[in-house]
């Protein structure tokens, strides 16, 4: 009986020892020396791995932060200012200035505005539709409504509105990680400067067709008439390829342009209902 006990103790012990030696040797052989600051920086990052910074994940971004000398171009769109400052302190480098951004959907072609011209019968994917044809509406620029941006969002900040069949961004949840912008095959979503009280004013259309054609396909299309350009006191609006664009950096939210638009393509969001004549500084 005692033989059995002793034997098993010896055998198991020897096996354990052998395994330990092998593990130790392998760990020595394949040991990778890493800058310990990478781990420290990664601690501060949100671990969302959204890719909004342009790197494949938080770890890769942390490595980039440690390796690069000038980190003023590197931003984590999800982190707040405090944690970025902490990272800068760990690394002893200068942090760039952060501008809060928010995703904005630049299409208002709901079915009542932009009538459907055909029925799409295929896999629900914006990418597949846009490579096949113009989509269910006549507008070759508009939203395809299959919600690839919704799938791309890691923060539950963008949802399809069942009535308009358009995606809507919840500003508080949006981290401006850029995932939806990349996901949209039509480049409809844009990251714009976040203003006070989430106020926004933008041209909700990216149609570059001539006015008549654009109007035929969608009632709220920008027809490139240029009225908004003339009325803007800050030269924030440019007209290119039959399409007006409001530069978020120049715009001071004076709201003069919106009433001018004959197709109501310029949207004002989160402003008080009563119209003010004077400019409100953003």
């Amino acid at each position: 009986m005692s033989d059995v006990v002793i034997n098993s103790v010896i055998i198991v012990g020897a096996m354990g020892l052998a395994a330990a030696i092998i593990l130790f040797m392998v760990a020595q052989k394949f040991h990778v020396v890493e800058d310990p600051r990478i781990d420290q920086v990664e601690e501060e990052l949100p671990a969302a791995n959204c890719g909004g910074c342009g790197y494949p994940g938080c770890r890769a971004f942390a490595e980039a932060l440690v390796k690069t000398d000038d980190i003023s171009d590197l931003h984590c769109p999800v982190s707040d200012k405090d944690s970025m400052e902490k990272i800068a302190a760990i690394l002893g480098k200068e942090m760039g200035e952060m501008k809060p951004l928010v995703a904005v959907v630049r299409c208002a072609g709901s079915p009542d505005k932009s009538p459907r011209t055909n029925i799409y019968d295929g896999t629900h994917s914006c990418t597949i539709i846009s490579s096949l044809y113009t989509g269910e509406t006549g507008c070759p620029y508009g939203c395809l409504g299959m919600g690839e941006c919704v799938d791309a969002c890691n923060f539950d900040a963008i949802h399809m509105n069942a009535d308009t069949q358009l995606p809507e961004v919840t500003d508080d949840l949006c981290t401006a990680c850029n995932a939806c912008v990349v996901a949209c095959p039509r480049d409809i979503i844009e990251l714009r400067k976040k203003n006070k009280k989430d106020r926004k004013i933008f041209v909700s259309c990216i149609n570059e067709d001539k006015g008549g054609v654009a109007r035929k396909n969608c009632k709220v299309a920008c027809i490139g008439c240029g009225k908004c350009v003339k009325v803007c006191p800050y030269e924030a609006i440019t007209l290119e390829n039959n399409l007006a664009y409001i530069d978020p950096d120049k715009c001071r939210l004076c709201r003069k342009c919106a009433p001018e638009c004959p197709t109501n393509a310029i949207l004002e969001i989160n402003f008080p209902v009563k119209k003010k004549k004077e400019a409100t500084a953003g």
Partner: peptide
């Protein structure tokens, strides 16, 4: 199953 739809999606990406 619309296999080709997905393969096209994969190819374009």
């Amino acid at each position: 199953i619309p296999l080709l739809d997905y393969i096209r999606l994969g190819k374009s990406t």
